[in-house]
Design a protein around this nucleic acid. Sequence first.
DNA 1: CGCGAACTTGAAGCCCGTCAACTGGCGTGG
DNA 2: CCACGCCAGTTGACGGGCTTCAAGTTCGCG
Lengths: 232, 232
Amino acid sequence: MYACHPSAYRDESIRIDESRKPFSSLPFQVMAEAHLYYAGDESPGLFEVRTGLFRLSRVTRNGRRYVVGFGYPGDVIGFCPDGVHLSDCEAVVDSAVIRHPTETLTSCRADPRAHQALVRAALREIQEMQDHCMLLGHNLAHERVAAFLTRLGERIGQPKGDSVAFDLPMSRLDIADFLGLTVETVSRSLTILRKAGIIEIRNLHRIVVLQPVRIDALAEPDPRVAPRHTPA
Amino acid sequence: MYACHPSAYRDESIRIDESRKPFSSLPFQVMAEAHLYYAGDESPGLFEVRTGLFRLSRVTRNGRRYVVGFGYPGDVIGFCPDGVHLSDCEAVVDSAVIRHPTETLTSCRADPRAHQALVRAALREIQEMQDHCMLLGHNLAHERVAAFLTRLGERIGQPKGDSVAFDLPMSRLDIADFLGLTVETVSRSLTILRKAGIIEIRNLHRIVVLQPVRIDALAEPDPRVAPRHTPA
DNA sequence: CGCGAACTTGAAGCCCGTCAACTGGCGTGG
DNA sequence: CCACGCCAGTTGACGGGCTTCAAGTTCGCG
């Protein structure tokens, strides 16, 4: 029994002090490309992302990969109903997380404040997945990419006047597998946005949204709908 | 403040006895086409589906509808992170639910057993949404329909020898909006499955899966992946 | 500077959305 | 009892967007 996948401990990573359970809220480092857990692993608990970025992915029987989601700072990752993970969880860049034991989610006795926060995080996750399903369900490729960039800007963007700049740590393939597209289509969509003057691609992993308003319009249709209260 | 949308109370519906909160675990009836809640409503709590079927849907700004999911018997519906619903929830057929106050999910003090069950339900929901995203992300139309029928068979099917029969209470449009397709494509896909001898369409709302093995194969790629444990 | 990986761009084919016509089931009313 | 009409579903033809395959280009690192 270990709190986190061994590969995450390599080199400068800090080992969790198991004696502190169930209140081991020490942040610890996870190196880029280290896994927090693999599909098939018994759940090591939940992780609150402090810095960096995580990629949650599944591989289908026939070898296709699907990126279920990304974990940004502030997100909680590692939800898992049956104690065994179905997805891999890998740090995209050097990151730091805080571990929360599963019991903190399931019981409010140990740490009521953390419990509340984890339940809320789970509910947010459900809603985000719904948003994402809507995106995958009926949006064009460039709309999906636009929505993705918008979201990224909200989460990790640094506003600078009218524009918003941010790093794009993941590869084009990660984005494609997340948005249900191919690398080529993602690339073409980025080109479309760039040629339209909506974004600037400083380098492969640095994006500047020059016209947030226009990219928001593309990310439409917005799932957040106005109250529409017309009972019989 | 009401426990559930007024329109759900019409006629033979049973009003919730608010004095029983927070342990009002009386099942109550919801008529076909009655709403449990609307987008914009303050959350009336969680609902455990006992019988029938619910449809959760959102309408986008530009008028497109998206079916976020269905609530089968045994499911818990009504999760909502910020106290306000973004989706409509409507009974597809006459149904019965048990209401659980939101506090039962957020705190384990009132009813520890129900609390555990609701947390698990939320985690299952996350996983199901992930499965669904994979389906929307990279499956062909007839694969999506096949996966949908497979799931339906698992949830409400009556096995009869080798085959599995079940009602299809929702419309083709519901299915289409759920699978990110059009009515026409759903119809074509069903025809493909029928002509291949995989399913039989008794009538518009009665399906018999004649060859569960073949429909499972189509519903591939299966998201549940075998453990693949190869740390450095 | 040179190499490989990642990304971009181009061309062709296919799946699915759109538009349109047709079919079938069901309730109404003559 | 049958005719009609409406609605849901099915089927067909066409066009467009995305995937696939292939080649070219850029980026990053030794």
